[in-house]
Design a protein around this nucleic acid. Structure first.
Lengths: 117, 117
DNA sequence: CTTGAACCTGACATGCATGTCAGATCTTAC
DNA sequence: GTAAGATCTGACATGCATGTCAGGTTCAAG
């Protein structure tokens, strides 16, 4: 598929998709005229990239995490990086959950206070 | 306590703590000489702020979420904003968890591939 | 073959949180 | 009161992902 369709399917702007390509996060082939061409896997891949970005993983780390970017090869360094980042994300998810709990408490307290007023 | 101690306790730079103050994320009083003074709650508060930042909540939203910043007042708008953000964070936490699952799969697959090689 | 939509490259701009540096002022221990 | 360390303000710089704009090329439908 071409960049417009991928953008539509993922909600990510063409500008960003081109940048993902530059950063080797996304595999792209070219038509004879130079237009980018993506295969169907790209949709899922873009979604994962977005989640990782939202979790604060910088692009240069994502490139080191997601295997098979260009060559299909996977190095032990990639596995190490992946496990490392996975650990970090687990910790972050736990902290986020704890903070959500606290926010829940605040909501309840605040509602009570407003009811009393 | 003063800014240096708060920085040490939280791991957040004095520069950032001053900026939190500017953005009304953090309550600060001043000594007669103009130095910032924080009370003990600030430590916990800074930690929460950091978790929210890591979850992608921009500072201007944080200011609207955490109640009682200066005045101790809490408006219905704050509650609405808080619940809204809470919903977003829950969705994000779920997505993050799903992505972690997928990364786990990739780790296993990759290990197998490496073992086979 | 033409035309309008989609795409290309390249450059500059933005928002956000933080880093860094300079020069001045405050605080505290002696 | 003085010296050393902590803090102040204000300004400029950085990294990251994205937005935007301009001028040109390609694609596909008629």
């Amino acid at each position: 598929m071409r960049i417009g369709e991928l953008a539509r399917l993922t909600g990510v702007s063409p500008r960003s998709l081109r940048w993902y390509g530059e950063q080797s996060l996304l595999r792209e082939t070219r038509t004879s005229g130079g237009h980018r061409e993506y295969d169907d896997d790209a949709v899922e891949r873009v979604r994962i990239i977005q989640v990782l970005f939202a979790a604060g993983v910088p692009a240069r780390h994502v490139a080191g995490i997601l295997p098979c970017v260009d060559t299909g090869t996977t190095t032990p360094a990639m596995v190490a990086r992946l496990e490392e980042e996975r650990t970090r994300l687990r910790a972050q998810a736990a902290e986020l959950a704890a903070t959500l709990e606290r926010l829940d408490e605040v909501v309840v307290e605040t509602r009570l206070r407003l009811l009393a007023a």
